[in-house]
Design a protein around this nucleic acid. Sequence first.
DNA 1: CAACAGATTAGAACACTTCTAAAGAAGAAA
DNA 2: TTTCTTCTTTAGAAGTGTTCTAATCTGTTG
Lengths: 144, 144
Amino acid sequence: MTPQVNENRTDVIDLENKIRSANLRPTRQRISLAKLLFSEGNRHITAEKLHGEALGKGVKISLATIYNNLHQFTTAGLLREVVVDASKSYFDTNVEPHHHFFHEDRGLLEDISSHRLTVDDIPNLPEGTEISSIDVIVRLTKRK
Amino acid sequence: MTPQVNENRTDVIDLENKIRSANLRPTRQRISLAKLLFSEGNRHITAEKLHGEALGKGVKISLATIYNNLHQFTTAGLLREVVVDASKSYFDTNVEPHHHFFHEDRGLLEDISSHRLTVDDIPNLPEGTEISSIDVIVRLTKRK
DNA sequence: CAACAGATTAGAACACTTCTAAAGAAGAAA
DNA sequence: TTTCTTCTTTAGAAGTGTTCTAATCTGTTG
């Protein structure tokens, strides 16, 4: 019983619980994805990139499953989808309210914690609506 | 020489000048598009919708031309592209700095004039970058 | 273990966008 | 005007990211 084995075992149990908390069965594929997504710091990743990463680590999983699970995790509040690019979706493992820098040249997202950028004077909402979310994207290019 | 005829003639000349100001030739297709886009108030429209609208008004124009011109107009600063949906692009005829309400259920954009919503405390930018734009999208759903 | 609901999968299908290369139209020069 | 060049348009093919389908497999419950 080395500490390492303990750590790994605990991690997997935590991830399984996280998956169960979303009313989903902890399958081999979901556990592998959760490991990639949640085990080190916040990530911003696209479906195809995550698929590549999984295959690269020897996890056998289809692209359809990646999409299925990214959406299920998002619905369950484990992920948040960030719309910054008209052609692909990014998924963010940080589900706390916050905003983003988007490096347009590199297609890379970076968090801005929401107490470091505030939105004021939000006007009255149109009749019969409520806010679902407020997205602030500060788009960046290389300084000339 | 009725006022109407005058107005129409003047309109078209204005639109031609607008197109020329972007270093583009005022072709029949461009003038028709400019008429649809710029002749009454601000609009937020997708390529396919604009195509449908043009065909509906009897303007013979291909979808490729719609895309070509939306991009050329955008590059020239006559339009602004708004990213709110991961699967299609919206083009906004209002090129002044401003923000948006996005009605998620209807796929509809609405302007928020920028003096009615302000962004404060923008943090220091990452090294070597500069701001290309700041997009604020207030996503709305139907009030329950 | 059996039985069932939920999950995964390969590949087809889909929606939006871009590309291709050939034909057409606009503007400049003579 | 005619000619020449460059820009523009076009239909359809191709491309890209995503979703669908329906057959197979797996986790869970009794």
